[in-house]
Design a protein around this nucleic acid. Structure first.
Lengths: 341, 341
DNA sequence: CCTGGCACTCCGCCGCCGTGAGTGCCAATC
DNA sequence: GATTGGCACTCACGGCGGCGGAGTGCCAGG
């Protein structure tokens, strides 16, 4: 069936181009892959593939290069995700094992991903909005100054100071602490905020809250709805950009600019948080002009893969199977580590 | 006096070269700067400056370029730090004002510095070792599981979990909490660690500590002496590397690699923490091969400028007066903000 | 000590051409 | 109808040579 062979040709071209970084010609193809046909046949196939938009030739009398559409087909139908070798798995586990806190996990993950894929790695901090409240502590630093410590399931800790108008006694403080925890502990952020809000508004059954409670709750709700912390992303492995053989100005510069824009990164990663599978965005598929010549491979991590996302950014000409495997493997290990702690 | 003129020539060459990025010749010099002498005279001066090692000519019949030594002389004796304009000051203040927590201050500072200097900015997190303990909170998550929250004067918050062998009661917990805070609050990290240590060892006057106290103190001391957190540095503005006109491979790549090595960055910044003034490291002055073609402009910030350091990394061909002014200004504002909070 | 003049050097640029990889097309073959 | 070998064609790439111009070093005169 010649349709099958055409796909095999596309696959071979992608593989060779990724390996050699040079346009691949018909002759080289038949030599390197044991397609049992002549170069002329391959040329016909390549011409057809080009008509359909999967290939592109930089100029007449040059070999072919996959287009974004070609890579897309390759990723969707022609590639099998490489299983991670046991050596790799051990490396990942060893690398992440020593992490002591959330910051450390995130930073190690970035380095690890960058190292494994030899690309620029991006890891998003666990989002506030998906976390649940593990515990809220209220500490009186002075009789009028309270320290609020908000501990989340993701391991994140937020703290806030509250100034009171009047002194607060130990009893009142204890009552406040337990009321708040009763309402919020175990809840998803949004629900916790709502519950706390209800607490302070009061209703027929319960009396309106005392001024200290009101002040504390206000601050807590603010901290919870404060999504700045959602916007934190760590980038690593930028040195790998040096391997961008082709033009520095047209590829690397815009990419560096995009990497500085946390908002862009978050949107990219955001697209990947759903579904649980590894997401691949190829070339100009997205609306980001700066990333027109790059691909993003990302996936969610954490419970249900919905806590946050991580991935890599690299040239469209990349080893998709290997990269996808690495991203998936790291995400799994990170999920596991976060689950344990 | 011809010696004065020679220095004026060097200054002019540095300024022109920084502005134009091209070797500067004698004719262009006399035109752009109103040195009231002929090009021939300048040529003689330039030849002399070259003999002394301040200038270098890429090849015969090209203009001159400052050497590292030339930049050094320029920075030490020929440049006056530009006073920051009031507009700039307002921009800085406005940019940093919105910061809510330490993370935010650090990240905003990096962006700000990168923007002001159009270079790669580097900001070190406040070092643990210089901070004092503001408060230690001990929270029982379960009867055998304690959460320790260590709040430092720098705004940093460290938290640790401790598992106990036996249940702990509320009374014991309260006693533990007050003993620990009594010993550590207000002390510099190192002293606090020592005081806690003394607490647990006990002496003739006081009984030896209970097992829970011992466990808690051990964890605290570990957290305090754990200098990983000292090793945190934030980098920004890497997109500015695109302005490196000359060879990408020889300049940008090694620089990107160096930027990934937090250890190197810390050493660089470490040199700047002392003395209070802005420190400049030019080209190959340091032992870092990767940074042979770059300069580092850095200074300390925080009380006594000793809390941590921030600065920028850029090509040796940079606007030193402007950059130094920007670094100094940002450091001052950051110090002030940290002081207030 | 400065200056104008002059010969010299050498980089960067441009156009040229040969080479070779790779193509498209066609007629012959299976 | 698919495959194949043959063939003419195209075009990027690299090396070569010549030239223009910026900039220098040196020298003799002010």
């Amino acid at each position: 069936m010649q349709e099958d062979r055409r796909l095999a040709v596309l696959r071979a071209i992608v593989e060779d181009y990724v390996a050699t970084e040079e346009p691949v010609g018909s002759k080289a193809l038949v030599e390197r892959h044991h397609l049992n046909v002549s170069p002329a046949t391959i040329r016909n196939d390549m011409a057809a593939l080009e008509d359909e938009g999967y290939l592109h030739q930089p100029h007449t009398s040059a070999g072919r290069v996959p287009t974004d559409k070609g890579y897309r087909l390759f990723v969707d139908r022609l590639s099998t995700v490489k299983p991670t070798s046991s050596a790799e798995r051990r490396a990942i586990a060893g690398f992440l094992e020593g992490a002591v806190d959330l910051d450390d996990v995130v930073h190690r993950s970035v380095r690890l991903l960058a190292q494994l894929t030899r690309q620029v790695a991006v890891v998003q901090y666990p989002t506030l909005s998906r976390s649940t409240v593990r515990h809220i502590e209220v500490v009186a630093l002075t009789p009028t100054r309270l320290l609020l410590v908000l501990i989340l399931s993701s391991g994140r800790v937020e703290q806030r100071l509250v100034e009171l108008d009047a002194d607060i006694g130990d009893d009142e403080l204890g009552a406040l602490r337990s009321r708040i925890n009763l309402a919020a502990t175990g809840e998803v952020i949004a629900d916790a905020a709502a519950a706390l809000d209800a607490l302070v508004r009061g209703d027929e059954a319960t009396p309106a809250a005392t001024p200290p409670t009101a002040a504390v709750v206000e601050t807590l709700v603010e901290a919870m709805s404060d999504h700045r912390s959602d916007e934190r992303v760590v980038v690593g492995g930028t040195a790998n950009l040096a391997r961008f053989g082709d033009s520095f100005e047209t590829s690397v510069r815009p990419l560096l600019e995009a990497l500085e824009e946390q908002v862009v990164l978050l949107k990219l990663l955001g697209e990947a948080t759903s579904g649980g599978a590894v997401t691949v965005r190829i070339g100009a598929e997205g609306p980001y002009e700066n990333l027109a010549s790059t691909s993003v491979v990302a996936t969610g991590y954490g419970p249900d893969d919905a806590l946050a996302a991580l991935g890599i950014v690299g040239p469209t000409r990349m080893d998709y199977p290997g990269t996808m495997a690495a991203v998936r493997a790291v995400a799994r290990y990170v999920s596991r580590i976060l689950d344990e702690s």
